[in-house]
């Protein structure tokens, strides 16, 4: 098991490369989901505002 983590002496290089890739890929998922969620909330807010203006005008 230790042998696996040592990567034949290249542990620093191998694990930092894989670590950075994981970080970037996971960040992409979080950002994309956040963008979609925020967009939906903004549109919901906009619809609600328009409805309110619509009822006060009546």
């Amino acid at each position: 098991m230790m042998e696996f983590f040592e990567m034949g002496g290249y542990a620093v290089y191998v694990w930092s490369a894989f670590g950075l890739t994981t970080l970037v890929l996971v960040a992409n998922v979080i950002f994309a989901r956040h963008l979609l969620k925020r967009t939906k909330l903004q549109i919901t807010g906009q619809i609600r505002r328009e409805k309110r203006i619509g009822t006060t005008n009546k």
Binding site: L36, K40, I43
Partner: peptide
């Protein structure tokens, strides 16, 4: 997967005035 999530967000926003977006089950609360 990620491209489609982002594209959905961009599309919903650019179509926010359209009827299908206002009636979208994920937007209407």
């Amino acid at each position: 997967a990620i491209m489609l999530i982002r594209a959905r967000a961009e599309l919903l926003w650019s179509e926010r005035k359209a009827k299908w977006v206002c009636e979208h089950p994920e937007v209407r609360q």
